[in-house]
Amino acid sequence: MSGHGHGHGGGGGGGGHSHGCGCEGEHEPAERGLEYGLYRRIDVQKMQCLNESRDGDGKLVFKPWDQRKDREKFVESDADEELLFNIPFTGSVKLKGIIISGENDDTHPAEVRLYKNIPHMSFDDTGREPEQAFRLNRDPLAELEYPTKIARFSNVEHLSIHISKNFGDETTRVYYIGLRGEYSEAYRHEVTICNYELSANPADHKVESIIPQTNFIS
């Protein structure tokens, strides 16, 4: 589904998606950029990209909407054409759509498979059935959105994106991955977990097991 003309502000806002406020006539790109704000909800420190040719490059393709055509930051696969992104969010996400943009050649991803809530996924796990799979078109301008089956992608705390093939090159190159959807804060459980650590560990109290002297002075 071609993207840049879609103006039905999918679930985002209140009412007036077509009200022209008279300021600058071209407001749709900004509104669409807000819809693609889920990259800000990624726990970047814990995110992984497997088979990236240079360590850390996989994190660079999740960037703001207005940088989606930037060619300086990208990730390229290493040993073969596959890439696997493990993306933990800082809360719960309802994923509504995805954009994947690469070079206008055979390094562009041709197929992507999406998995939900399987942390630390490896290539060994990609044989299982995905929540959804897409055949991709070349999209160097980041214009094509692939809508997800929203019922399957509610309450997503961890998303895995497996790029399983490209258009025939030995390696795959990705410039931008856009995630559209809604975000909810996570409930915090750390305090309860800490309380359990207060219970005594017998191994910490070996001193008490020494038999005390029983000689009493009369």
Rank of each mutant, 00 (worst) to 15 (best):
V44P: 00
D139C: 08
K73H: 15
K96C: 15
Y115D: 00
S101M: 09
G37Q: 05
H108S: 14
D124A: 11
K59P: 06
L95K: 03
I118F: 13
M121W: 07
L50T: 04
T148L: 11
L84G: 01
Y146M: 03
R54Y: 11
K94Y: 08
P140T: 00
N117Y: 06
K63P: 07
V75P: 10
G37R: 02
K73I: 05
Q45D: 14
A142D: 01
E131I: 00
F85D: 02
F74L: 07
D70C: 12
E72T: 13
E76P: 01
G97I: 02
M121T: 02
D105K: 05
V61R: 02
D57F: 14
D80E: 12
D70I: 00
L84K: 00
D125Y: 10
V112A: 13
K73S: 15
R138E: 13
E81M: 15
K73W: 13
P147K: 07
I98M: 15
V61E: 04
T126S: 02
S92W: 06
A151D: 12
P64V: 01
L114A: 06
E76G: 07
Y146L: 01
I99Y: 05
G58H: 03
A142W: 06
K116S: 10
W65S: 12
L136R: 07
A133F: 07
I98A: 12
Y39A: 01
P119Q: 09
F134V: 00
V93G: 05
Q132H: 11
V75A: 06
G56M: 07
P130R: 03
S122T: 15
Y146N: 10
V61Q: 02
F85L: 14
L114Q: 05
R40K: 14
I99R: 05
E131Q: 13
V93L: 09
